[in-house]
Simulated scan of single mutants.
Amino acid sequence: MAATTTHFPSQKAPCGRAAAGDHHIESDDDGLSFDDVRFSCGCRETRHTYHDGCIHVRTVRHDGKVLRDERSTEHEAFEV
């Protein structure tokens, strides 16, 4: 599984603030991938794609409020 983490100096976080953070990506050759963004304010965005084609997208604000929590199956149309 290949993994990379990139730091970014400022990007709009889910709470609306401009915040620095880290973007972490992991993937394998069979379709599994994790795409996580963590902001310095505490907000987090994740997109996980599994081997069977299912996708889970979750956005959590720094105070813990879940702004988005969606799952799809390989048979559903899913836009992010």
Score class of each variant (00 low, 15 high):
1 M>A: 11
2 A>G: 11
4 T>F: 12
6 T>S: 11
6 T>W: 06
7 H>G: 14
7 H>Y: 14
11 Q>V: 14
14 P>T: 06
15 C>K: 09
16 G>D: 03
16 G>W: 02
16 G>S: 05
19 A>C: 03
19 A>S: 05
28 D>I: 04
30 D>M: 09
31 G>R: 00
32 L>N: 15
33 S>G: 10
33 S>H: 07
34 F>H: 06
35 D>V: 01
36 D>A: 07
39 F>G: 00
39 F>T: 00
40 S>Q: 15
40 S>I: 04
41 C>M: 15
41 C>H: 03
42 G>P: 03
42 G>H: 01
45 E>M: 10
45 E>K: 04
46 T>A: 03
47 R>T: 09
51 H>T: 12
52 D>G: 04
52 D>W: 12
52 D>L: 09
55 I>M: 13
56 H>S: 09
60 V>E: 10
60 V>C: 06
61 R>P: 01
61 R>K: 15
62 H>A: 13
62 H>D: 10
65 K>I: 01
65 K>E: 00
67 L>S: 14
68 R>A: 10
69 D>K: 12
69 D>H: 07
71 R>E: 13
76 E>Q: 08
76 E>V: 05
77 A>F: 14
77 A>C: 06
78 F>D: 08
78 F>R: 05
78 F>Q: 13
79 E>L: 14
79 E>I: 09
80 V>D: 12
